[in-house]
Design a protein around this nucleic acid. Structure first.
Lengths: 149, 149
DNA sequence: CAGCATCCGGGTGGATACTG
DNA sequence: CAGTATCCACCCGGATGCTG
């Protein structure tokens, strides 16, 4: 699909030739971060870890509804991104603790802000949806499920 | 999959019986908003609209790499959520303008904060990824693509 | 306990062709 | 120009079974 949105805010000016990092790259990377934050489990896991280190099944219970597959995968992704640390205690039975890094904790700040926004504006969103559905649905059209939930 | 994470920060205490809205519901709705914000196109489109009203193909060019299908779908979803307005001018050729509502503009604030965070911390993330890949990849394992990009 | 490997269904989203 | 309709490939993510 090759996203190539050269810029979003400012028009391309002629002084963009000598800077080693075109903001195109930044824009792409920001989108990546947004995508990670927006994925189904990341925020839930990071939030759960906000209360301190947790073990694998402990997290599984806290998040609720996640499969081990996705928990493992998401944790590994977060570890790769430097958001969480994974500490193995080779005992029997084995013990693994996951903990937020400073980077992971710092992420909680803007994410929390977004959460606050959501909490404050969900009534408006719900109202808009209800009205939209009342006007448009009878005419016989519907959105794909992933945009409705 | 039925996410039922009763709480994320505080343990379930016995005083959660008389409030009409369990925070379970709120938590689910917040996740929905996060999912919307994190989806592939929403933020890009909302950001593009931040500079003022835009027409359909204008948006398509600004976002860059989006298919009309997804542009239409995402715009309709944003309209349903009360984030953008859609104004049709029945001329030949037809003209349709999309514009952010107050709600949509207010979303740009926390999203901008997240963007700032991303911009500030991407170097750290990249460094963590590079190191992680250097240590773990040789051993012969790899993450699914959607967690790597 | 803490995973990994495999299978597999459903949904997401791109490409293409057609309409008002 | 601004969409709609259809087809289809890919991959996310759940369920299950097996290891150390």
């Amino acid at each position: 699909m090759e996203p190539r949105h050269t810029e979003v805010t400012a028009p391309p000016s002629t002084e963009a030739t000598h800077t080693p990092h075109s903001n195109t790259v930044d824009c792409r990377k920001v989108s990546q971060v947004l995508a990670r934050v927006g994925d189904k489990w990341t925020v839930l896991i990071v939030s759960s870890l906000g209360g301190g280190p947790k073990r694998f099944n402990e997290l599984k219970r806290l998040v609720g509804g996640i499969s081990q597959r996705m928990l493992t995968l998401t944790l590994k992704g977060l570890e790769r991104d430097g958001m969480v640390t994974r500490v193995v205690t080779p005992s029997i039975p084995p013990r693994v603790d996951y903990e937020l890094t400073d980077l992971g904790r710092s992420l909680l700040v803007p994410v929390g802000a977004l959460g606050e926004w959501a909490l404050a504006n969900i009534p408006q969103i719900d109202a808009a949806r209800a009205q939209f559905d009342r006007s448009s649905r009878p005419a016989g059209f519907n959105l794909p499920s992933f945009l409705k939930a």
